[in-house]
């Protein structure tokens, strides 16, 4: 049977390791790369390698960074007494886009999930506790995802931080603002109704 030439097959194999990429998409990507200029392919490959070797974890907040401590942790304008705890580096970027948050972050790199074999010791919880113990902190905001694993992680952390007697908050999840009520899904709407308040 006719098969792909070995280099193509190998590229396909690697593309398939990416999330959401099946054999068909992988083949399309591989042939697309074949069409690209050699310079572009080299730049692409280098970008991938730099991604892995050029980055390290910030010694303070555990976010990925080129130099530790990271730019946010070094910024003198940030409020060092507030820490916002998020699951992933990309959550920091989402929070930063709001331009409303001026404290520091702590990136866990995951959430507690026995099904994926992830326990508290596998994410940066220990680092967070040490950090809270060694610094003057007023408030820790738990901004993990609003799913079972994110809630479990927030609950777990809040129990560990209780003894420090600092303010512990959990971000609210509600109706998207600016959108029309009719476009909100039933669950969001029903939950917003459950959590209504008097005016």
């Amino acid at each position: 049977m006719y098969g792909y030439p070995e280099p193509v097959a190998r590229a396909i194999e690697h593309f398939m390791k990416l999330p959401g990429v099946g054999p068909k998409t992988a083949a399309r990507l591989a042939f697309h790369v074949l069409e690209m200029s050699e310079a572009d392919v080299k730049a692409f490959a280098k970008a991938l390698i730099d991604l892995k070797t050029g980055l390290t974890e910030c010694a303070v907040c555990c976010n990925i960074t080129e130099a530790s401590p990271c730019a946010i942790c070094r910024d003198p304008r940030r409020d060092r007494r507030i820490i916002c705890v998020v699951q992933e580096p990309r959550d920091v970027i989402a929070m930063e886009r709001t331009r409303e948050y001026h404290g520091l972050y702590h990136v866990l790199h995951g959430a507690i999930s026995p099904m994926e074999g992830v326990g508290p010791q596998d994410i940066r919880i220990r680092e967070l506790v040490t950090r809270v113990g060694e610094n003057e902190i007023d408030e820790v905001i738990l901004a993990t995802n609003p799913n079972v694993e994110g809630e479990a992680t927030a609950m777990y952390i809040s129990r560990l931080l209780k003894p420090f007697q600092i303010k512990l908050t959990r971000i609210a999840h509600g109706l998207p603002v600016g959108g029309d009520l009719e476009y909100a899904d039933e669950v969001t709407l029903a939950k917003a109704l459950e959590g209504r308040r008097a005016l």
């Binding site: 326990g119 479990a152 129990r159």
Partner: peptide, 29 residues
């Protein structure tokens, strides 16, 4: 159902680690 799956998985593998508070977070949910 999701929290239950997580709890059951934890119960099955807990021989390896003592309860350090993980179970309680799923029980609550």
């Amino acid at each position: 159902n999701r929290a239950l799956l997580q709890r059951n998985r934890w119960l099955k593998s807990s021989g390896l680690s003592p309860d350090d508070g993980v179970l309680a977070t799923f029980d609550e949910q």
